[in-house]
Design a protein around this nucleic acid. Structure first.
Lengths: 221, 221
DNA sequence: GGTTATTAATTAATCGATTGATTAACTTTT
DNA sequence: AAAAGTTAATCAATCGATTAATTAATAACC
């Protein structure tokens, strides 16, 4: 009983540790660039353990992916299902959640964007796309609600607005080098990221979408 | 004399052909995914020719890159240096040029975005970033001019607006699968791309930036 | 409860395949 | 004859995956 529990916990700890390391390395150098030798080496386990636990390199990658995605989707859905908020409030809150979450895990988000952009029509690429679509659809639901309730203008381009939210964020967080040159600051500096860049992105996106989406713009303010 | 010209032309044709093939393959499967055997095979040349002409696989990649980027940068600069246009007109024209150019070569743009997002601090990644920055700075110049001439509002976030232009476009064009699901159409369908999507992106970006940037918004229209 | 059989976990060594690059021989052009 | 272009063959390195052997943990049995 006790030993059973202990054993399960240790095993899961070890798996989690491998997933932690794999996530970091995948994010840094991409799927192709991350060798199983490097991952197992930095995780301090034998190379064969990766196949023993996850079947293959691709299985390891999917395990990393699935572990990561769950919590974020739950947060979005909880906001979307709140009855007491207007669509605009929901959208603002989702943007906050999105920027908070995704800037912390920006290396992981980079990984996803990169792998999805590869022209492979394999089950891996399909699966990644499907999971990303869940987030997209959460945003879309809010936009549709906003139009239906009259909070948003009727002539907005919902799909493009979604592309702007995700695209703007990706552009900043997907390439540290480019973003650092554009912004004149080191975006890998956590202090700058937390105290300046994150609030700036949030504020910008809200201001931008406010003038584009809302019916009752008060431009004098 | 004559034979010299002929020879140079044939050689350059051959080189160009290799670059054409390499560009397509690099764009489809990424730098790591593209083997020199595959490239040379599809180009119909011996594998050793790639090293003979371009020194290495990385040299070939840079050659592809540099050949591609020149014409686009010239177009942007010509627009930016036009004395007879307002900053807003320039920006609109740059957006048109950008969407036209980049949607045609979307696979190539995808390649750049992907490779730049890899956390390598090598000369290749640096060079890619530098070349991309040239385009970014062209846009920035227009924004700064717009603020200085009073055409744009003074409280706009220039860097973020740039991120929105590039980011929104990238989000649509970097993943065919995701974009197709978001838009409900096959974005790899050239007819749909040319007749519907491209005008839609242009119109959206102009409308969005107009309400965000301009001082004299006529929202009643 | 102690001993043994069974299963799970882990290791080192190695497999075949593929990678980018190079060599030396050969052909064409100058 | 010299130089440039081109080829097939091969290099060493690395890749993901697998094997067989060993150790650790669990179950079964007397």
């Amino acid at each position: 009983m006790f030993s059973n529990y202990k054993m399960d916990k240790e095993k899961s700890d070890k798996k989690d540790h491998i997933l932690d390391v794999a996530e970091r390395i995948f994010s840094d150098v991409g799927f192709d660039g991350a060798s199983t030798r490097l991952i197992s080496g930095e995780a301090g386990v034998n190379m064969a353990m990766l196949n023993y636990y996850f079947g293959s390199k691709e299985g390891l990658f999917l395990a990393v992916f699935e572990r990561k995605i769950a919590s974020f989707q739950n947060m979005l859905q909880n906001i979307g299902n709140d009855e007491n908020m207007s669509a605009w409030d929901k959208l603002q809150m989702c943007i906050d959640t999105f920027i908070n979450k995704v800037v912390v895990n920006n290396c992981f988000q980079r990984l996803i964007t990169r792998e999805v952009s590869i022209n492979k029509t394999g089950p891996l690429s399909e699966k990644l796309t499907d999971i990303l679509m869940v987030n997209v659809l959460e945003f879309k639901k809010i936009f549709v609600e906003g139009v239906a309730t009259g909070v948003f203008r009727k002539d907005i381009d919902i799909e493009m607005a979604i592309a702007t939210i995700f695209g703007t964020k990706n552009y900043i967080s997907n390439s540290s080098q480019l973003a650092s040159k554009l912004l004149g600051n080191d975006v890998s500096d956590i202090k700058y990221m937390d105290e300046e860049l994150k609030p700036r992105i949030k504020n910008y996106l809200k201001t931008l979408l406010k003038v584009y989406l809302l019916n009752d713009n008060d431009n004098s303010k």
